[in-house]
């Protein structure tokens, strides 16, 4: 591992200012960053520990919740308010990683965890995400876990987070503090980027930006479902996951917010799919049409082609359940 300096930030202001120094990284739970450092994938010169900042609380805000950036995944999953009003988030968190990892992992760190593409993890393999312009060795290789939506010729990686998928369906907002103290809010759906030609740029964060919280809007009596398909019962990343947050009114779908994991470089939402469901009475036909739309531009690499039928099936199952178990 490359030698690095360890610093502890005592205020958000200090954190953002210090983070402007080159090769500086915030340290949350370290469950992703430290692994990547040991493998020489991340090589920061300075680690800025944000765990002592006053960002560790979950507070009520406008009927919703404001989740501090350093709240641990375990604490968030167990919070009674989350369990009551945002069960999809609790379930998604508990479907991720392992108990030990969740005890360390933070809200901000989870959003910013990096892809699990095995070629990204091997510094002897070409990877545009690690070294812009180097090429992508995943394409044509082992692609079982790779993207079927929104990928590019430069990168076909997926974002591995479960938590972010649930948050996307809940229309969460990321609160960001820039150097100088200005705070801005970004919809979770706009927070991560598609790879395009620049897969190394993964989010809308600018140099020095610190995530301070994630805000969940007030719940509106939706049914919430999280389903994750994986290669073993626990401690595996999603092949496909879906978060469905659906509100019914008089036998019709009033609102449907759907987010998918394992399919793309970011938690995947598709406004067209949601629009095609809204106002309609639920039926398998309707769900099929929604799946058609969702998957119209889906494109597999061969080994991950199965994600296309799997997504269709899991979408239908989730919608059946969310709309009252009928079809």
């Amino acid at each position: 591992m490359k030698d690095f300096a360890y610093l502890r930030a005592s205020s958000c202001d200090e954190a953002t200012t210090e983070a402007l120094e080159p090769a500086t990284r915030f340290l949350g739970g370290g469950t992703n960053l430290l692994d990547l450092m040991k493998l020489g994938i991340e090589t920061p010169a300075r680690l800025l520990d944000v765990n002592r900042l006053d960002l560790g609380v979950i507070e009520e805000l406008d009927g919703g919740l404001r989740i501090g950036a350093t709240v641990r995944n375990s604490d968030l999953a167990a919070d009674p308010r989350v369990r009551r009003s945002y069960p999809v988030l609790s379930r998604a968190l508990l479907a991720g990683a392992s108990g030990q990892l969740r005890n360390m992992a933070t809200t901000a760190g989870n959003l910013l965890q990096r892809t699990r593409c095995p070629y990204f993890y091997d510094t002897d393999m070409a990877c545009n995400k690690r070294t812009p312009g180097a090429g992508c060795s995943a394409i044509g290789g082992f692609t079982r876990y790779h993207a079927i939506l929104g990928a590019s010729d430069a990168c076909i990686a997926t974002h591995p987070s479960d938590m972010a998928v649930a948050m996307a369906a809940l229309e969460a907002v990321v609160e960001i503090e820039a150097p100088g103290g200005a705070r801005r809010h970004v919809h979770l759906a706009d927070f991560h980027r598609l790879p395009g030609d620049t897969p190394h740029i993964e989010t809308c964060l600018e140099p020095g930006d610190l995530i301070t919280a994630v805000i969940l809007p007030a719940p509106a009596g939706e049914r919430q479902i999280y389903r994750k398909i994986r290669d073993r019962a626990s401690y595996a990343f999603a092949l496909v996951s879906v978060a469905a947050v659906v509100r019914m009114e008089e036998g019709r779908i009033a609102t449907a917010r759907l987010a998918f994991g394992g399919l793309a470089h970011k938690p995947w939402r598709d406004a067209e799919v949601e629009a095609c469901l809204e106002g309609e009475p639920p039926s398998d036909d309707l769900f099929d049409r929604a799946a058609d739309r969702l998957l119209q531009r889906a494109w597999g690499q061969g080994e991950n082609d199965f994600k296309i039928p799997l997504t269709r099936r899991i979408l239908t199952a989730a919608l059946r359940e969310a709309t009252g178990g009928m079809a």
Binding site: S98, R116, P118, D231, R232, A233, S234, Y235, A236, F237
Partner: peptide
């Protein structure tokens, strides 16, 4: 994480 052996679950 990539070579899956059975987890407790």
């Amino acid at each position: 994480a990539n070579y899956h052996i059975p987890a407790h679950a």
